[in-house]
């Protein structure tokens, strides 16, 4: 019971200290999980991160589930995950109420119009970062262009592109005999 509480508390702390998620979380996990608690080695953490990235879901959540599972089995995985999302729940609910109360003010609307411009630039930067690890050859570029055109022009669920691109990847690399 005590260790479950420590898992929850440690990952709640990681949740509070993570801004933006993904790789921003790695140094914090290194300090809390590897150096302070000794729950995993640096190599294991890198492995969890790599797997967290190539399994569905939010990377921070996947990594928390992994480490929790390693410590205390299935229950540990669940508790660590609840810990990492707990601060988000509290903070966002508090903030959403505040934003709701002030959103009718003109200057707040102007401020959000400015912030949306910043969001464009942040998404653009995120795409460039994803691009570097995703688009490495002609086939990958072709998949990128098809998925981009499809998302912009067709009115279908993103699930379809996820399934089709996974099949395309297998077709190109395994049935097409292209070396991975």
């Amino acid at each position: 019971m005590k260790e479950l509480w420590i898992l929850f508390y440690t990952f709640a702390k990681v949740g509070v200290m993570t801004f933006g998620g993904g790789y921003a979380m790695l140094p914090i996990l290194q300090r809390e999980v590897v150096e302070r608690k000794g729950w995993a080695t640096d190599e294991e953490l890198t492995d969890y991160f790599a797997i967290g990235q190539c399994t569905p879901g939010v990377i921070a959540v996947n990594t928390a589930t992994f480490i929790g599972q390693k410590r205390r089995g299935i229950l540990g995985g669940i508790v660590a995950t609840l810990g990492v999302v707990f601060p988000s729940l509290i903070i966002i609910i508090a903030l959403a109420g505040v934003i709701d109360a002030f959103s009718h003010l003109t200057w707040v609307q102007h401020a959000f119009a400015g912030i949306r411009v910043c969001v464009c630039v942040l998404i653009f930067n995120a795409v460039l970062k994803l691009w570097k690890s995703a688009v490495k050859d002609g086939w990958a570029l072709a998949i990128f262009l098809c998925a981009l055109a499809g998302s912009l022009l067709l009115d279908v669920s993103p699930v379809i592109f996820v399934v089709l691109s996974a099949v395309a990847g297998i077709a190109i690399q395994i049935w097409g005999g292209k070396k991975a």
């Binding site: 995120a126 994803l130 995703a134 688009v135 691109s165």
Partner: peptide, 27 residues
Amino acid sequence: NAAFYGLRPASTAMVAAAGVTVVAVAL
């Protein structure tokens, strides 16, 4: 590995398409 070879560029493209929508709203 092969499935993710296909998934990663598609995922990047879908985020890019979402970015285009934000551009339309913001700019």
